[in-house]
Write a protein that binds this DNA or RNA. Sequence first.
DNA 1: AAAACTCTTGACCAACTGGTCAACTGCATG
DNA 2: CATGCAGTTGACCAGTTGGTCAAGAGTTTT
Lengths: 203, 203
Amino acid sequence: MADAPKDTKQLLIETATELIWSESYNAVSVDEICKKADVKKGSFYHFFPSKAHLAMEAMDYCMCNTKGHYDDLFSPTRPPLERFSLMVSYIIEQQKEISAQLGHVCGCPFATLGSELAGQDELIGKKINEICAKKTAYYQSALRDLMVEGLISSETDVVAKSHDIFAFIVGHLIMARIHNDLGFIENHMEKSLLDLIGINRHI
Amino acid sequence: MADAPKDTKQLLIETATELIWSESYNAVSVDEICKKADVKKGSFYHFFPSKAHLAMEAMDYCMCNTKGHYDDLFSPTRPPLERFSLMVSYIIEQQKEISAQLGHVCGCPFATLGSELAGQDELIGKKINEICAKKTAYYQSALRDLMVEGLISSETDVVAKSHDIFAFIVGHLIMARIHNDLGFIENHMEKSLLDLIGINRHI
DNA sequence: AAAACTCTTGACCAACTGGTCAACTGCATG
DNA sequence: CATGCAGTTGACCAGTTGGTCAAGAGTTTT
């Protein structure tokens, strides 16, 4: 999440991501973003036609970042169960890092921004639909591989289950953000997730 | 959610609840709330020392409303499994109603507001802690009753499971809000929830 | 070297932000 | 009647909001 920004546009995107993720879209002003990035407002509006467009590009940036990691974590070369375990570890590490950097637990940037703008900007729904589709695709292929290995019931509704997993993680991240506490995620989420998937059935 | 407002203060709380739930805290201005409630701003600041205080009282109002319903749904006189089923039905009905009234799916008011203000106002975290504690208390007692009836494993970690249920529901509601679509909740949530609780284990 | 292009700058804007205030209303109590 | 008080009103405030723009700087292309 922290590479050297090349150009002004990228700098603005990264600065905005931090600020918006930490606070919220409407709580962060264009002036604030510009000031923190040390860029004049005229430059801002040279690259982005509006604040909303910046937010969209910030989401693309986040998703691009996530994809880089998930393509590895969910590589079909890994045992499917390991993919989920690694994902949970990755989430925990990422949250710890951001929390240390920004001073409090930030949760899922897509859910936070999406929830805030859902009643404001129609476009954001489409964008998050894309992201949701990508994430659930990772889950679905892992679930199918689990099924082949006989680790989950052959009657599992894979698509529905993938959405359950997504909602489950988003929900826990939102709660961690609100309570500013990663304790539950660190201590329980992996087990809870495996349970939701249907692994720990016959202890 | 729609009773006749008695006094100006209650009118403001109800108007603000609608507006904030539908859009977001920072997207709604005091002026807007006052205009819609047909109350002058001076009156607003007669009842509330600040916009943030209004938001707090709006949450209390929502929680009070919820409690009235949940005390019935989760009455120990009901079979524990029925309590969860009724809760899902209640959530669906409530979401449908609000969606029809406000023009789009609104999700969970606590999660939406909480997520937005988590990085802004420390106080909100405490408030939602209260709400979370109350909701999970309903779940926990139902889970314990399920355990006594032998419907879930006697090794279930009731407290952790109650938080999983809470996160699961919050997550699905957030996604419904973002996608502006209740389809998944209507078609899958009850089954998914029973599955998460650990009921549908031996189909 | 001239033109063309991308990028930067700072001044500027109208609309709006959360919040204040002194004066006013109507009603209950003494 | 008068005193007090909860509630109401509209004018007012300084600071901020998202956004514009003409002029200029730096670099490529012709």
